[in-house]
Write a protein that binds this DNA or RNA. Structure first.
Lengths: 338, 338
DNA sequence: TTGAAAGCGGTACCAG
DNA sequence: CTGGTACCGCTTTCAA
């Protein structure tokens, strides 16, 4: 047992007063005599007293902890998001419980369970890529633990979300390539069912339409985002009778893979690439895309946390439960390199 | 108050039995009738009962939470370390509280305080770069909260540490360059007082000695690791009357800066670079070092956590307090590119 | 101004 | 096999 940790009772005993008096003295309760207040505070200081928050938490029914579950930290998107989350959390005296799902639904379920056990006041989640059942999220409703989803969002009703609208960014991306004179533009998209993929496709089509170009489905291929899948997708696109002069890539990482592969198989054939993420290392790369769509992870994290704390505070203020759901959508933005 | 959360008592009431019976039933206590056990479990399931860990924590005096404080997540070293930490933590039913000090001592102090309030069972810390007073760490001893330091370690007595011995890696790095024929090798080191810097210098000297070359202090410069400082350091080295043909750079990031600068000022003058970190993006870089020293962050995180849990468990097993301190030192390893 | 006591949600011991 | 009860550390009425 955490010995060496003085409690309110020990202080009380030494001072021969009741421990409720000590509690009040420590909290500057107005009805406490100045004399006792000072005595108590002095002794508490001397003994190195610190309130045991776990007790306070139990009593208050809240933990001042928010859980954050995301696929992993390898992609700089997520560290940036965490920084945004932390900024707001710290400002509000909250603390961040972190878990990486590693894009495994089993692990995600485990993490949700674990955080529920730890009674986080709320959760911020970017879903594992292949999560397709949402019971573990639903279950949290019973516990009245609010969730704010960001980035990778489940297809559920009545949830709070923060996301970055990739449609506008995609339109910018394709328009950029069109402006550069490209007319046959391929799209290597992510897994089909992902919202992220749908939005990219949507923007891609819209941009073509806007420029009165016909949409050619054969120029769109999907990748499972493994290196193999990426290269495969590239090969499929290159097989097309229509020779693409530019490719929109689902993500910078995918772009890296295909640029490397392009280098391997076909040095001379110059294909322009535009991708998504705007990873900070991009400027240092040997081969880099011409531009990349920024998704503002820091801002997403920040917003998500603001929302979450809002919801939590309403919960504890016993405000009338309202059925409104936050659905924040930031705009993406194409960043051109050089 | 977290309503919607059934308690053991509510279950007891519905079943008209005492809540202690419910508690035991839920824990498969041997002395509980099969009938009641099943009844209880069934109802608990139906009501979506989950034990309130904060209550358990209070009772047990532990939180099954470890705090992790590190400078930031931008450098892939730290995400990797966290992954190692998480792996062990999860295995042992622990959960990870994360805080970024952003290399600010004030923030570090705040985070330590915050985690102490939350009664983490232990802490894993990589110190902020310019932390030079250690009271906030000392204070934790009063609370009996163990710390394991890794990577950036304070100059304190009687602490547990996990680190990567950079000396061997440095020797390998310099030997590598010597083998390639370089004879005038510069060292751009980090801040002088950092252990990390000392080790690099140490290895650098040892390697020279081994090859019967004289150590020339004028070939060693320090950088504060800002971009400006890095470039400055490079310029200082280039000013030397002895023309370096190779440079050992304190870190990949420093290497990036100076390679860029070299490109800017002096394309033709080819200087070989060897650095530290082995960042995963290195293979994709436009200019890259010839080799980089790997510090095994994942392993460091893992080891640190194993140690910490060990200490924690001893604490709770009330084992005889022993004055032994862990001091784990992993070996670094030079990774050659292409 | 202060003390006593009831919880918060559990665990665990002691009787029956 | 089950109920009663004390306790973990603290906050907060209710009385005095």
């Amino acid at each position: 047992m955490t010995k060496g940790m003085p409690t309110i009772k020990e202080i009380a005993k030494k001072l021969n007063i009741s421990f409720s008096t000590v509690s009040r003295a420590l909290h500057d309760h107005p009805s406490i005599g100045l004399g006792t207040k000072l005595k108590v505070k002095k002794l508490a200081e001397e003994m190195g007293y610190e309130p045991n928050q776990t007790a306070v938490f139990l009593q208050q029914g809240r933990t001042f902890t928010i859980g954050v579950i995301l696929p992993h930290l390898a992609e700089s998107f997520f560290p940036a998001a965490i920084s945004g989350i932390e900024e707001v959390a710290i400002e509000n005296n909250y603390v961040v419980l972190l878990g990486q799902s590693l894009d495994s639904i089993e692990r995600e379920i485990m993490l949700v369970e674990s955080m529920r056990k730890h009674r986080v006041d709320g959760l911020i989640i970017s879903m594992a890529k292949n999560t397709n059942s949402y019971e573990h999220f639903e279950k949290l409703k019973i516990n009245n633990i609010p969730i704010v989803f960001f980035d990778c969002i489940p297809n559920m009703k009545d949830i709070h979300t923060v996301s970055c609208n990739m449609i506008s960014g995609s339109i910018q991306a394709v328009s950029y390539l069109l402006k550069k004179g490209h007319r046959v533009i391929g799209l290597i998209n992510g897994p089909e069912k992902l919202t992220a993929s749908k939005e990219r496709l949507d923007g891609y089509q819209k941009a073509l339409l806007k420029n009165r170009l016909k949409f050619d489905p054969s120029l769109v291929v999907n990748s499972d985002l493994t290196k193999k899948g990426n290269i495969n997708a590239l090969q499929n696109i290159l097989k097309n009778k229509r020779k693409v002069s530019a490719i929109v890539a689902f993500h910078d990482n995918l772009a890296l893979d295909i640029m490397q592969e392009l280098e391997n198989i076909n040095k001379e054939h110059k294909i322009s690439i535009v991708s998504y993420a705007n990873l900070p290392m991009m400027p240092f790369l040997k081969y880099k895309p011409d531009a990349s769509v920024e998704q503002f992870p820091f801002l997403q994290g920040k917003k998500a946390t603001e929302i979450l704390l809002d919801i939590i505070n309403n919960k504890f203020k016993e405000t009338i439960e309202n059925n409104a759901f936050y659905k924040i959508i930031l705009d993406s933005k194409l960043i051109e390199y050089d």
